[in-house]
Amino acid sequence: MPRNPLDDVDWDAVKRYKKLVLIVPLFILIAVGALTSYYIVQPEEEAVIKRFGLVVAQKEPGLHFKLPFGIDTAQMVPTARVLKQEFGFRTQGIDGRTSYRKDSMHRDESLMLTGDLKVIDVEWVVQYRVSNPDKFLHQVRDPEQTLRDVSESVMRRIVGNSLGSDVLTEKRVQVANLSRAELQKAMEYFDLGIQISTIELQDVTPPEPVKPAFNEVNQAEQERERFINEAEKRRNQVIPRAEGEARQVIAEAQGYAAKRVNAAKGEADRFTAVYEAYLDAPDVTRQRMYLEMIDKVLPQAGRIFIMDENQTAPLPLLNLGDSPVTVPANR
């Protein structure tokens, strides 16, 4: 006789535990229901509430209730947080000291062509915020990747429409502003629910192999300044001294002039004075002056010969020198 499997059941035990068998699942049911009927939205977040997959509400930060058992689901999106994407490098270490990493993959991101068909290495950061969490979640499958792709494309278009030397220097801000505007427009086109806060250009440099040549230009520029400065220095060493010397020459000439004129005046005055005295008694004065001169001259002379008209040989008056002196006898 085949055994009825139900005969083996300890029906007494079933009766005994009947209550428990009903209560435990019920309790679990209530617990699960309670746990899935509320959610907390953090201050920087917004919640998107979906009922059977259909978006029914967006909630602000705080405690909220919903239908349990997965009928309603809540998805939190950090709308208040400013998010960041880096191009051409990656920041490492969130807190404390940060370091920047750049390898060949990142270099591919940042190397681009300029309008003058050169190559330039532009690193930049896009800061953005989720402005519409519903759209952010449901409009595009991978919004971050879309943002990356579009941002790269936009930056390359703008840089490709500028001169490389401008992007390196004065047009940095302009490039950032233009690409921000264009990126924002693209975000609106995709209806991504993303608001672009800023685009900031980081390091904008010539490509690695060209850098030494660029540095050489900077050095040469400084060298040029140095050359010029040195020449100015030489100039400053010479010119003020020459100016001083010029003033000296002029002053000396003025001194000479004063001396010369004064001497002339003195001499003239003396002459006039002597002449006036002379006019009082011309003959005597003349005689006296002549003799005074002789007084001075004769003692000075080395030898003096006094000749008589009638004699033929010179007549030595004072000491006769060793060497014979021949003097013409007659005039």
């Binding site: 002379a301 030898r303 000749m307 008589d308 008209e309």
Partner: peptide, 15 residues
């Protein structure tokens, strides 16, 4: 005269 006549000069004067 005092300037031109020096001790190396020889003066020959007629009487």
């Amino acid at each position: 005269y005092p300037k031109t006549v020096q001790d190396t000069s020889t003066l020959i004067l007629g009487t």
